[in-house]
Design a protein around this nucleic acid. Structure first.
Length: 442
RNA sequence: GCUGGAAUCGUCUAGUGGCAAUGACAAGAGACUGUAAAUCUCUCGGCUUCGGCCUUCGUAGGUUCGAGUCCUACUUCCAGCA
């Protein structure tokens, strides 16, 4: 994998570049669409391309059982409709998708034409290691990035712990079928090399905001040991599918400067038989106010010439700060999840669609997404969303997801242009002023 | 006309002696950041110094310490019979 840097900001960290993978290029900064199970919910691969998404991120944890099948088909970016239609995985997959409201849920996806496998994603792909699930199934304190410190432990206090960490890896209960399972660095690498994304993440342990400094030292050291094991295993399999797969080491260390700088140096130099990581994942749960500083600590220590992926963030201020501080790629479920939940992104701040039952105005007055161009208004979209008709709802999820995703993708495109033209600071200031000073902001 | 049955918060609905009264939907507010998330939380008669207070289950009476619940009459609706 090559990474070409075209321009660097005066701060020496933020940059414009191009990542070249076996399945295509990624012009950075870039936002990757999240398709956890190998497809992006409610958005077809063709629609993804049209809205400017350059890459898709899937998850080794969720695809672990289908991984051998995916490998046989030649990897995530090569699987055909026939694969999903014919594979045994389909039955299991459908059962999982349908777990809440029976067949209806699947019918909704079929009706809208968004079942996985109607097409395949032709482009660069990335898989996560399953490390995030250590926390989301385990310590269970939502990965909240909040403006307010008091709020950082929220909404999951009564969760049952489904995952436990040991030196070997993570033992967990699959929340869908209740079966016990285990993933360690070796397992994660084997799974990811079967799925065959262009970029893989080392198996890491994400700590929550509630964890102590002492625990973060322990978890970070474990993540570094896992990183070396990940690299060792990855090297064995990285060419198994006939093209070169790449591995990013993942930085943890919470909100502490000494830990962040230390792990950046350690992972930046880490090698197995002279082979180093191809790039780096910037991980962690962040308070918004700390994000820029933490990224600066990491990226001042990491090698300049390798790409960095900021894991799991996408709010505009986070992306702007991330790009400024040297993150090249991003991914996040928020644009699509929030779309499904009725939050529509606009340049003047986000709106809650519930409040616009009669509104004939566009979603966003300045938007070039397919949904807006097709003339959907706040009112007409709200009517779809609130409809009891499951097919209409599916249509809403499609239209709203496209809008929000395009909004974030476009933001990264504009950041790239602004950086190239040397006006990043002005662009950032203008965007944030407009976006965060509106009274309707939610 | 007779005989049964039914009338509860926008809608549907639970409730057969201690109830401002169940659940669902609708409505309203908030949350969501490497997807256990088409999800979750809160509000949903009025007032409140948050301890309560007031007014409510078709209408009017009655029994009872106490009635949405029991009794009587009336009104309306449904079903069956004329």
């Amino acid at each position: 994998m090559e990474f070409e840097i075209e321009k660097v900001l005066p701060n020496g960290l933020g940059r414009v570049g191009t990542i070249k993978t076996a399945h295509g290029e990624i012009k950075t900064p870039a936002f990757m669409a999240v398709g956890t199970r190998g497809y992006v919910r409610f958005i077809s691969p063709q629609e993804l391309h049209m809205l400017g998404a350059q890459a898709m991120l899937s998850n080794g944890y969720h695809l672990r059982r289908q991984a051998p099948e995916i490998a046989k088909a030649g990897g995530l970016a090569n699987i055909s409709a026939a694969f999903w239609a014919g594979a045994e995985a389909t039955a299991e997959h459908a059962a999982r998708e349908a777990r809440n409201d029976g067949p209806e849920r699947r019918v909704a996806q079929e009706a809208a034409g968004y079942l996985p496998g109607s097409e395949s994603w032709q482009g660069p792909t990335l898989t996560d290691s399953g490390g995030f699930q250590v926390m989301s199934l385990g310590s269970g304190l939502g990965k909240v990035v909040s403006m307010e410190k008091e709020r950082h432990v929220t909404n999951t206090a009564h969760k049952e712990r489904l995952a436990h960490v040991s030196e070997d890896g993570v033992s967990f209960i699959d929340p869908f079928d209740g079966q016990p399972d285990f993933i360690g660095p070796e397992e994660s690498m084997q799974i990811q090399c079967q799925i065959g994304a262009d970029i893989h993440m080392a198996f890491d342990e994400l700590t929550s905001l509630a964890d102590t400094y002492e625990y973060n030292i322990e978890a970070m050291a474990r993540t570094e040991r896992w990183a070396e094991r990940s690299l060792r295993e990855h090297i064995k399999h990285r060419d198994d599918l006939g093209y070169r797969q790449n591995l990013y080491g993942v930085l943890q260390g919470g909100r502490w400067e000494d830990l962040r700088r230390q792990t950046a140096q350690t992972l930046g130099k880490m090698n197995v038989d002279g082979i180093e990581f191809d790039g780096f994942g910037l991980g962690g749960a962040f308070l918004k106010e700390d994000l820029g500083e933490i990224l600066r600590w990491c990226n001042e220590e990491l090698p300049m010439n390798k790409p960095r992926h900021l894991l799991g963030l996408s709010h505009p201020d986070d992306i702007l700060i991330g790009a400024e501080m040297g993150a090249d790629t991003f991914d996040c479920v928020a644009p699509m999840r929030e779309a499904r939940h009725g939050k529509i992104y606009t340049r003047e701040g986000n709106i809650n669609l519930r409040k616009y039952s009669d509104a004939g105005e566009p979603l966003d007055h300045d938007c070039d997404c397919a949904t807006c161009k097709a003339g959907w208004t706040r009112g007409s979209l709200r009517a779809l969303w609130r409809s009891g008709d499951i097919e209409k709802k599916a249509k809403y999820y499609n239209l709203a997801s496209i809008h929000n995703l395009r909004f974030i993708v476009r933001l990264t495109e504009e950041i790239r242009v602004a950086m190239l033209e040397g006006c990043f600071d002005a662009y950032k200031h203008d965007f944030l002023t407009k976006y965060y000073t509106n009274a309707d902001l939610c």
